[in-house]
Lab assay of single mutants.
Amino acid sequence: TCPLCKTELNIGSKDPPNFNTCTECKNQVCNLCGFNPTPHLTEIQEWLCLNCQTQRA
Rank of each mutant, 00 (worst) to 15 (best):
L48F: 13
C2W: 00
E46T: 08
C49Q: 00
W47T: 06
Q45V: 12
E24W: 06
C33I: 00
N27R: 14
C49E: 00
C33E: 04
T54L: 02
L9H: 05
P16W: 02
E46A: 06
C25K: 01
Q45T: 06
C25F: 01
Q28Y: 06
G34F: 10
P16K: 05
C52L: 00
P37R: 12
C2E: 02
Q45Y: 12
H40A: 13
N18I: 03
N18R: 09
V29H: 08
N10W: 01
T23V: 13
F35I: 14
P3H: 11
L48R: 09
N20P: 06
W47C: 07
P37I: 12
P17A: 06
K6V: 05
N51W: 04
T1G: 05
F35Y: 12
T42Q: 13
T38A: 13
C52W: 00
P17T: 03
C52F: 00
P39W: 04
L32C: 10
S13W: 02
C30H: 06
C22T: 01
C25L: 01
E8H: 03
C52N: 00
C49P: 03
F19H: 10
C52T: 01
T42R: 13
T1F: 04
L9S: 10
P39N: 05
N18Y: 08
W47S: 10
I44V: 11
T42S: 11
T1L: 09
L48M: 04
C22Y: 00
F19E: 06
E43I: 04
T1A: 02
E8Y: 01
E24C: 01
T7P: 05
W47D: 11
D15A: 07
C2R: 00
N51E: 08
L9Y: 06
C25N: 02
P3N: 07
L32M: 07
E43T: 08
C2H: 01
C30T: 02
L4M: 13
G34V: 10
K14R: 12
Q45K: 15
I44Y: 04
C5A: 01
N27K: 10
K6G: 03
Q45N: 11
K14A: 09
E24I: 08
K26D: 13
H40L: 10
F19T: 10
S13C: 03
N36G: 12
G12R: 09
K14H: 13
L4D: 15
L9W: 03
V29Y: 09
S13P: 09
I44F: 14
C33T: 00
N18A: 06
T1W: 03
C25E: 00
I44E: 14
S13D: 03
K6Q: 10
G12F: 05
C25Y: 02
D15L: 11
K6N: 13
K26M: 15
L32K: 15
H40W: 05
C2G: 00
L50K: 13
S13R: 05
C22V: 01
K6I: 08
S13M: 11
C25M: 01
Q28G: 12
C2Q: 00
E8I: 07
C25D: 01
E8F: 03
P16F: 12
P3D: 13
T21L: 08
Q45L: 08
C49L: 00
K26Q: 12
C30P: 01
K26R: 13
I44H: 06
G12N: 02
C5K: 02
N10H: 02
P39M: 09
P37C: 12
N36C: 09
C25R: 01
G34M: 02
C25A: 01
Q28S: 11
C49W: 00
C30M: 01
T54D: 12
L4Q: 12
I11S: 10
K26G: 14
N20S: 09
C22I: 00
D15E: 05
P39S: 13
C49K: 00
T54W: 03
L32V: 14
C30D: 03
G12L: 10
E8S: 08
E46C: 04
L41F: 14
L9I: 08
I44G: 12
E8V: 04
S13H: 09
C33V: 01
C30N: 02
N51T: 09
E8P: 08
P17V: 03
C25H: 02
E46Y: 04
Q53T: 09
E43N: 07
L9A: 12
T7K: 12
T54F: 01
C49G: 00
G12K: 05
Q28W: 07
T21E: 12
G34H: 03
H40D: 13
C2T: 01
C25I: 01
P37L: 10
K6C: 04
K6T: 08
E43V: 06
P37G: 12
E8W: 02
